[in-house]
């Protein structure tokens, strides 16, 4: 094992052991110096997680969050220099983390929080203008085969829990009052989308979520709408499209099988 690897392993080990061969410039105990450094590494990564996951932290309290994040950090050190996306795997970690099992919605809230950061940094894209949509309408026969491209920042989380309401309650003036009104185990789907520099979170009905997910996967307009209404009898196509158009989520439209002009 290389010195470098031994040093890195000792940083993340559960118990502090000073890697062999360390010396301190001023003759102080290298074990104590190393312990300080080790603690700073963990604390700064836990701080980074707390910054990305403020609602997750608020839901479990700072003490629980920092303890949980401390365990995560040890098994999931950063893999890139980009700290903004650090902790991408926290939601999956929470799902398997038994002490958090009494909050089954926690993982989905964490998922939503990371998607917001990702949306913030996603590429820009110009929304399709209304003239182009009118041109699509003029060629009604081919409308079912139209494929819509969606904004790079767009993402969805479908949850068995009220993740949007839980998240939104923490953005309210009075968090406790807003939280009291939330029914945690009602199903909700969140649409995350950046418009300008603002990352928005929308609560969308199941059918809209299915429809948008289908479009995202490259399924053409007709079948995407058909599958959504098969999955949710209450699917409102006009409302789903209205939301996408209004929020600038549709960035281009091409007829399936044809070369985009």
């Amino acid at each position: 094992m290389s010195d470098h690897q031994a040093f890195a392993d000792a940083l993340l080990a559960a118990e502090s052991t000073c890697p062999p061969g360390l010396t301190a410039w001023n003759g102080s105990d290298p074990g104590r110096r190393f312990a300080v450094y080790r603690n700073n590494v963990a604390a700064s990564l836990v701080d980074a997680l707390a910054e990305t996951y403020p609602v997750t932290q608020a839901l479990v309290g700072e003490e629980f969050f920092r303890a949980m994040a401390g365990l995560f950090v040890r098994t999931n050190p950063p893999r890139t220099r980009i700290l903004s996306f650090y902790g991408d795997g926290l939601a999956d970690f929470i799902e398997a983390f038994t002490p958090a099992a009494s909050l089954p919605y926690l993982a989905d809230v964490a998922r939503l929080e990371m998607l917001r950061v990702r949306a913030y940094h996603a590429e820009d894209a110009t929304p399709l203008d209304s003239g182009e949509i009118s041109r699509l309408l003029a060629d009604e026969g081919r409308l079912p085969q139209v494929c819509f491209d969606l904004h790079p920042s767009l993402a969805l989380v479908r949850s068995r829990h009220a993740l949007v309401s839980l998240w939104a309650a923490h953005q309210a003036e009075s968090v406790s009052a807003a939280l009291a009104a939330v029914v945690p185990d009602s199903r909700e789907a969140a649409l995350v989308l950046r418009s300008g520099l603002d990352v928005e979170v929308f609560l969308v009905p199941e059918g809209s979520a299915l429809f948008i997910m289908n479009l995202r996967q490259g399924i053409a307009f007709g079948p995407a709408a058909g599958l959504a209404s098969a999955g949710d009898a209450a699917f409102d196509l006009a409302a789903a499209l209205g939301l996408l158009i209004r929020s600038g989520a549709i960035t281009s439209a091409t007829i399936a099988g044809s070369i985009p002009s």
Binding site: S130, I133, S134, L136, L137, E140, G141, R142, L143, P144, F221, G222, A225, L237, A238, A239, A240, L241, G242, L244, I245
Partner: peptide, 12 residues
Amino acid sequence: AASLALALGAAM
């Protein structure tokens, strides 16, 4: 196709 067009028009 007609119902898709209707919904798209309404959405606009």
